[in-house]
């Protein structure tokens, strides 16, 4: 039953993703790949769409995956699933546990989660880079398929993006807009990958 599966999966994602949109990418990646809902490439495309449209990244991703698997009802159910844990937890805190965040034990728990989330995001970035650019292919079949040729054009795009982003930040003292980087990479993709 795809609707129940979507609901429970996104409920889990909503309940265990700390640290905002990027914090949930590792969890969404793991679930979506395990269920066969998305490939590594499709996941990256989806994050790009989620980044370039307004609204919370998590809601965008839930709607997208839900729609691809179960139409408009699937989209609604996945979105409900991802929102529900936040909604309930916040209601409980707002109603009864205003001081919850001030307990030393809760602080200690969150203090352990925070560096863990940073590690998860960096690990996701590293594994996805190995998979998409480093020639590691789809990592779950790595042992059977083995390494393929690295994507040199991808590496070139990555280096140019990093140089552009860092120099703009140096010059303007402001972080670069993600949408600008997405547009720039789209242009480079059209030039470099054209068959």
């Amino acid at each position: 039953m795809i609707y129940l599966e979507l609901f429970l999966t996104f409920l889990r994602i909503g309940a265990f993703s700390f640290g905002g949109g990027y914090g949930m990418i590792s969890l969404i990646r793991e679930e979506a790949l395990a269920h066969g809902w998305l490939t590594e490439d499709a996941l990256l495309n989806m994050i790009a769409v989620a980044e370039s449209t307004p609204g919370p990244i998590a809601v965008n991703m839930a709607t997208f995956v839900g729609s691809s698997q179960g139409g408009v009802l699937g989209a609604a159910i996945a979105t409900l699933g991802v929102v529900l844990p936040s909604f309930i937890i916040i209601l409980i805190i707002a109603m009864a546990l205003r001081g919850l965040m001030k307990y030393a034990g809760v602080k200690a728990f969150l203090g352990g989660i925070r560096p863990c989330v940073v590690g998860l995001i960096l690990a996701t970035a590293v594994t996805m880079l190995l998979s998409r650019v480093g020639g590691f292919g789809d990592l779950s079949t790595l042992r059977e398929v083995g390494l393929t040729a690295p994507d040199l054009r991808g590496a070139v795009i990555l280096v140019i993006l990093a140089l552009v982003a860092l120099s703009i930040r140096k010059l303007t003292k402001k972080p670069v807009s993600p949408i600008f980087l997405i547009l720039l990479s789209a242009v480079m993709g059209m030039i470099l990958y054209v068959p």
Partner: peptide, 11 residues
């Protein structure tokens, strides 16, 4: 294909 690289950079 290019945008995927930007997403990796953003993550």
């Amino acid at each position: 294909r290019g945008i995927q690289i930007a997403v990796l950079y953003l993550i």
